[in-house]
Amino acid sequence: MVQLFKEFLDEFLEGSNRPVPRQKTPYHYQIRDTSHKAFYLRDTSLVAANLQVDNAIQEEKVSVVPNRMLERKKCPLILGIKGGTQGLSCGTAEQPRLQLEDVHLLNLFHTDKEAKRFTFFKTYDGSTHRFEAAAYPGWFLCTSPQDNEPISLTAQPGQATITDFYFQRK
């Protein structure tokens, strides 16, 4: 993650010295909730389930670019899937609702206003990670304890939903 920020932000700041910025690609992470449920796309929604290896190919990796406008210390990440061609949006309604939007993460990296609803502050407790919606403080990315339920957002982390994730760069 340090590397991700360095690659995207430090180079971005030094951009004036580099006439041709290197083509960047999002970093891809395997995300699993603490019940080892993986993310996969069922029809048009992102759900979590334990996948047997013969179905593992369907696992969606989370694509990540940093949000350059938000405080770096809070580890603000723009999240997406499908290699960074779909963004994990919290929507713009009063109540957040997780949805997929067809948008390139790399474009979001440059469009400051748009990026916020796709941005999550990542925290780490030494074992697992949490993702708090940047546009909706107190709302966290979560899965249901049941298999094959959609990924969603919760304002009550740790209750009935799973908000802790393993997050491994793959």
Partner: peptide, 21 residues
């Protein structure tokens, strides 16, 4: 050996593995 669920845990104080489905 060909049919299994892959679960990864960090070396840590407490982790759990899950019997799925």
């Amino acid at each position: 050996v060909e049919f299994f669920y892959a679960q990864e845990i960090p070396a840590s104080s407490n982790e759990k593995i899950v019997c799925p489905h």
